[in-house]
Design a protein around this nucleic acid. Structure first.
Lengths: 219, 219
DNA sequence: GGCGCTGTCTATAGCTCAATAGGTAGAATT
DNA sequence: AATTCTACCTATTGAGCTATAGACAGCGCC
């Protein structure tokens, strides 16, 4: 005999919140445009055409909304980067793919990315640390590829990999701030930057010996 | 500094606002740390050990303070860059010097630079445009050097100079955000970045000998 | 056809903050 | 000695903002 399965259970589906994606996107847009502290909940409500107080049906606080936006700003990033870094290919090839994949979300999620990059510092300490792990993981993915390149002799042996990572990410992250104004496709940016950076870290053709590239393990 | 008293002038401007530099520096520090909208005038007053209302003896509004900080954040930059760009030397050499001079203010004025880079968007439209001219001038200095390099055959002929400028400035400007946390001297950063970027834009191998990498680029 | 749930509303509490008004001690000037 | 000016102060106003409280319309469901 089946016990009546709580038709109106408190444990039933928490809350559908059908429009939540739409609400978070509006928040992302407003935060990206005006900055977290420069934006008001009223601004977000205006974008959606609802009342300011109605927003609190969807998020518990303004800071909560920021966290949701930031989470979507890094979402998946790190996993993809890690997969590329530990996957097959030359270091130069991997670096190129890392850059491409790092920039690709800008085509359709630039607001989320911008908020993550520029506003995450205003998160309460706890969630900031939680999200900070993603960032550091990403840096490590890049750095491991650079180190691999150095080890294999593809890249300059005196390369400061830490500085190079910071430089590469600086260059790449800045794209979020101008790519709408400049009229240019992300793929073109990725390609140009990848080429520039790979050439920048590559070992110069000083040694006329063909040894290094051929020296890779196996074969 | 003791003021030399002007003999017979009631129009003399005695010594107005002696502490102004100190006040603006405090504002820069607070704006850099918390962002313009995240900072309160009370925060600035706390740094100085004076009352919040007393600040209005030195600036007319919070936005006015931001403008003063931003002005000092770009101060002189552009002139120096222009001088380098139109001066003597190879393009690679000039690019190196541009990067060095672009990063050098970070040693002692990083707060001002950070505020200029991150908060200038919150200026009222008028002063933002006024300050925006400085930025564009700087971009042009970099771009003219890149174009010169291409023209002279130092740099790749298919280099997208606009994207390269944006990339270079992105890489360089990001330094302001991490160089305190990372323990590294600015000179080292300049040197590493300059080397990386010059190699990145340079025409591949000096075509004196056949090299392995040569067949990659155009032929 | 009453019930509960979702998604919105109105109204407002409670607080923070920029900015103004007006006062004054003390140094500098006359 | 009187006056002026600098560099603060106290007190307060008024606006704007986040967040809460509580009502309720429509809908799907037994």
């Amino acid at each position: 005999m089946t016990v009546v399965t709580l038709p109106s259970s408190r444990r039933s589906r928490p809350s559908p919140r059908r429009r939540e994606p739409e609400i978070i996107e509006a928040a992302a847009r407003v935060f990206a445009e005006r900055g977290f502290h420069g934006a008001t909940t009223q601004d977000i409500a205006d974008v959606l055409g609802i009342r300011q107080a109605s927003l609190y049906y969807y998020f518990p606080s303004k800071e909560g909304a920021l966290e949701l936006v930031c989470l979507q700003g890094v979402g998946g990033f790190f996993e993809v980067a890690k997969a590329i870094a530990s996957g097959p290919g030359t270091a130069a090839d991997k670096l190129t793919r890392l850059i491409k994949s790092h920039l690709s979300p800008l085509t359709d999620r630039s607001d989320f990315v911008r908020v993550f990059l520029n506003e995450r510092q205003h998160l309460p300490p706890e969630s900031r640390r939680r999200i900070g792990k993603w960032s550091r993981g990403l840096e490590q993915a890049f750095e491991s590829v650079l180190k691999e390149g150095v080890r294999r002799g593809e890249f300059r042996s005196d390369l400061d990999t830490r500085l190079a990572v910071l430089g590469i990410l600086g260059m790449a992250n800045a794209v979020a701030n101008w790519y709408r104004a400049e009229e240019v496709a992300i793929d073109r940016v990725s390609a140009e930057f990848a080429r520039l950076l790979v050439a920048g870290v590559a070992k110069r053709p000083k040694p006329r010996r063909r040894s290094i590239a051929a020296r890779r393990s196996g074969r």
